[in-house]
Design a protein around this nucleic acid. Structure first.
Lengths: 222, 222
DNA sequence: TAATCTGATATTATCTATAATTTTTCGTGC
DNA sequence: GCACGAAAAATTATAGATAATATCAGATTA
């Protein structure tokens, strides 16, 4: 949702690096060394630098002048921040999208919910979840808003992957179903209210550390 | 608010170009030719390209691969979109900032309001207005939210400059005063309500075209 | 002895110069 | 007036130079 042009080497690199950061294959705080990446992609380092600028704008990387670029770190405070921004913006989008929602779209959103409930791993659950939100929000026809929401979704997904990398248990998403029911009734206010609460729900889970100690992991699970 | 690193040539170029786009000295739709800009700043075109990527992420420029970069165009639809996004996000920020607002901050915000009321041109009015919003929102301590709001402010300012380039009449900002009054009373809900309405108020004004015809110009004036 | 400072070395980011494609422009012919 | 094609201009990428930062061994001091 954040790749306007998918033709240049720089955009390809930024897309692939964004995916690695989101899925956690590149760990928070790790350095992104431009000539290593350039070598991996068989290019020079100039397009790599352009990719860095885009990742920076998306909040996935932070750059210190003359000291290089690192994968952005995050903490519970930022998880909360992203959840609240998503709540505010997704409610706005839903209010504008609702009048344009067709039953065909809502059916596809329901399929996405089912797919999410049946997911056996985080990755496919996240994909289904993102599809659900995209389907019901895209008809708002507000490109700038959708881009912002897309970036926030990427951040959410990152938090999720960081917490539930391997263990994932099937959950039934009652919120998604409630939202769809309200939308089918034309009850936009209630649908928006559920959505607002839904994306601000922050799941927590004890995670065993490498040293054996356990800590609490947090993530947005909507 | 959107310049994390202010040390490299690329960031300097992006800041200056952003200012030109916002003030309208670079017109919407006009091409940004990298070697011309590189020559102007006495550099090569590589840092210019990095600056382009940042402008693109801020929504101030659009890039078509292999066809160059243009100053982003806008229309009434986007003015509305930005106004509504600002309303949603600034209300969120205010709710978190309010508990940390001191009377010293509110006094400075009042000074900014007075400065705005006394402004004789758009530029100084915009500066005072931005200061007001920044002062009452910054204590929310949510960096990602503040960055987004900053980008939206830049867009708003651009709409404003496009409409009221030369003619500007002094106006007294009753909304700002009402917000401050409510904040001093600790009445956060009313302050947020006024702010929400305030930034969504879209001013309109007949503007004489070059050919003599008049058209309506629109802008966010909060 | 431990800790800190100093300076040489190596690594890395940043920018310049240059080359290769692609797009646009513009003139010529039909 | 329209299509075609060569020339010009602009974007994109590469390779190489420069300057800043990190690393680490050795010296100095408490």
């Amino acid at each position: 949702m954040t790749s306007p042009n998918e033709d240049t080497i720089a955009s390809r690199i930024s897309r692939i690096l964004a995916d690695r950061i989101v899925t956690g294959s590149l760990e928070p705080g790790s350095k992104l060394r431009q000539d290593h990446i350039a070598e991996e992609f068989g290019t020079s380092h100039v397009p790599v630098r352009e990719a860095f600028r885009r990742l920076e704008a998306q909040g996935l990387a932070v750059s210190e002048p003359r000291r290089g670029v690192r994968v952005a770190s995050f903490d519970l405070k930022e998880v909360r921040e992203v959840a609240q921004m998503r709540a505010a913006l997704e409610v706005l989008a839903l209010r504008h999208a609702a009048p344009h929602l067709t039953s065909a779209i809502l059916d596809r959103a329901e399929e996405a919910t089912v797919a999410g409930d049946n997911s056996r791993d985080v990755r496919s659950w996240e994909e289904a979840n993102r599809l659900f939100h995209t389907l019901i929000l895209a008809p708002c026809n507000m490109p700038r808003l959708l881009t912002s929401i897309g970036d926030l979704h990427a951040a959410s997904a990152r938090f999720l992957f960081a917490s539930w990398r391997s263990e994932w248990e099937v959950r039934t998403d009652h919120d998604h179903r409630a939202i769809l029911t309200f939308l089918r009734q034309g009850n936009i206010e209630n649908a928006a209210a559920v959505l607002e609460r839904h994306v601000q729900w922050i799941g927590q889970k004890p995670v065993r550390n490498a040293s054996g100690a356990t800590r609490e992991a947090f993530a947005i699970v909507g």
